[in-house]
Design a binder for these strands. Structure first.
Lengths: 339, 339
DNA sequence: ATGAAAGCGCTAACAT
DNA sequence: ATGTTAGCGCTTTCAT
């Protein structure tokens, strides 16, 4: 007669199998020194009883949970609206599934709550944290706690962390230079929140290209937005009053919004206004007009993040590492003229 | 002199404060019977040392984690592409943030791995699981484990579970009846995976409307797809050969794909073909032509799910409860003619 | 109001 | 190859 399923322990399984707790533990953890017959008997009992190790106990004892946390601080709307995040998540889950690690996602919680959850030793072997604002203090707090953390996106200057990022500055530079070469002179920009390093870096690239062509920086051509399609639409409605001959949006999603706003006003792309986006994630490929954009290898970034984190976990190293992926201009229909 | 931050325990804090471990525990857990001065002293030390309770130990002892898990089995692509999920997640996080519970998300893991993670007592106080396929056995396995579970979307017939769902059958019925009243007779359908109860129920509603108008069910008009925009596009490319006068897609996202496919072929909507979607989530409102669709209250569903789960956790009840939200036809531009 | 002590379920060092 | 044993850090009686 088998016990109630819900309360099995190593001890109860041991009793059922007529062996000691340690032996059962060995079987569960695939330790080699267990005789085949004992192993089979125990395995059988585990199966019929449906025994599962108590993860809290396991963690408490071994100090490993085999779980890594993925923290997205972004608003849920943005998180799901922008194809960036699923891509990144895919890269991450792929490596996790190959390894013995499982992934747990955190969305939208205030910083303190999140810190409590993630910093308590006993929960995660390590964390991947997506940067949000340079004013955010979650990352420095976690680092101070000596929790293995890798950061997705460059964190604020004063934070020494291992991170993975795309070369945002150069990507933006390439895009704007391309527009300038095509003869565009009033290039407006739709940025993300300017507290994020990606927007800061991209705007730097924009400025560098302008300097190279001796064009003064005009901040009336720069509109801060939110990475949402609707935001791109509205930003365009405002920027259009400056009569720009190009729009460079810091995400494909916002570029889509811009295209729609232009279409609604009967402004032709690329004849009257060129448009370039940033990301080059799937929708950029199959919507029309096909979007010229800056490609960043998001999935690879996700994979790299996990690799770095797993290294950090196993080495216990306190060193820091930065991986910057190249970005690349993908010329399609919305900017006019080939590279 | 304060100890290294990373290894504080109840014991070490107690030593620092010159009290016993129990007293520190009482302070941490806001137990009333601690004298004010002791409380202050201990609180101060906790703050300066940055002590955090070990969650594994806590859980092991008290059998509560204050964490609920949200399990999405869907492919990451679908998960992020369909506005349904962020909406649901918002509803859920909202209630969680009001309560003392935290939310943890699971995405894309195989069933066994997921079961290990979620079923191990010691991790979650309860789970919200999104249904995927009627053949999926994660939910019955969790239920057998007596883990508090509420299900989002109706599970398979033979599963007795607490769940929240929209009235899919009637929503589809309303949509199709509307088309029939407008004189449409060859109404094609783009379904989701037919292993999902939502698609099954919606197809039932479709059939009921047809019966009411004495129109035979023609399965060549039914195309199974995947809830992605691209899927809607491709389904439409196939269905169009049957010369339908209407397309009813089981999600707004697929309806968008259908609209694009029709536009690419120069087929005018609603003049030549009517289109109706399902969901009525934000993009349905601001894209053109404005989509006629079936509204389901996704955010409320999310909230309800949490409420039901928290009840279940606190009551420890083994009873089961079903909440079905009404669906509603929202007539806009793509079907032609008002209600 | 505070402390002592037991034990949650597990792993791993040690003994056999 | 298997068993014995000692905790991991915490909560919670039970004393005082």
């Amino acid at each position: 007669m088998v016990q109630r399923m819900s309360q099995q322990t190593l001890e109860s399984i041991a009793k059922l199998a007529g062996v000691s707790r340690s032996t059962v533990s060995r079987v569960v953890n695939r330790h080699p020194s267990v005789s085949p017959d004992v192993r089979d008997r125990v395995t059988q009992i585990i199966k019929t009883t449906g025994y599962r190790p108590n993860s809290a106990a396991r963690k408490l004892r071994s100090n490993r949970s085999q779980i890594i946390g993925l923290v997205f601080r972004q608003n849920v709307n943005v998180l799901f609206a922008d194809p960036f995040f699923p891509r990144l998540t895919q890269g991450i889950t792929r490596v996790c599934n190959e390894s013995e690690y499982s992934l747990m996602l955190f969305v939208e919680g205030n910083e303190d709550k999140l810190f409590d959850l993630t910093s308590g030793r006993g929960m995660f072997d390590g964390l991947i944290v997506q940067t949000v604002s340079i004013h955010d203090s979650l990352i420095p707090r976690l680092l101070r706690r000596q929790i293995p953390v890798v950061v997705s996106g460059r964190p604020a200057q004063d934070i020494r962390a291992t991170y993975v990022d795309a070369d945002n500055e150069n990507g933006a530079y390439l895009a704007v230079r391309h527009l300038l070469k095509l003869g565009r002179r009033k290039i407006s920009v739709i940025t993300g929140e300017m507290t994020s390093t990606s927007s800061i870096d991209r705007l730097d690239g924009y400025k560098r290209a302008l300097r190279e062509f001796d064009i003064p920086y005009d901040k009336r051509l720069v509109h801060e937005s939110d990475y949402l399609m609707e935001g791109g639409y509205q930003a365009t409605s405002v920027l259009i009053k400056q009569n720009p001959d190009a729009i460079f949006a810091f995400s494909d999603t916002m570029a889509r919004g811009a295209l729609r706003a232009l279409a609604d006003r009967g402004i032709s792309v690329p004849e009257q206004i060129s448009v370039i986006g940033f990301d080059d994630l799937p929708p950029a490929t199959n919507e029309r007009p096909m979007l010229t954009t800056v490609r960043q290898p998001v999935r690879q970034a996700g994979q790299k993040l996990v690799e770095l984190l797993l290294n950090k976990i196993s080495n216990g190293s306190h060193s820091t590492e930065q991986v910057i992926f190249d970005t690349e201009l993908i010329v399609r229909e919305t900017c006019g003229g080939a590279a």
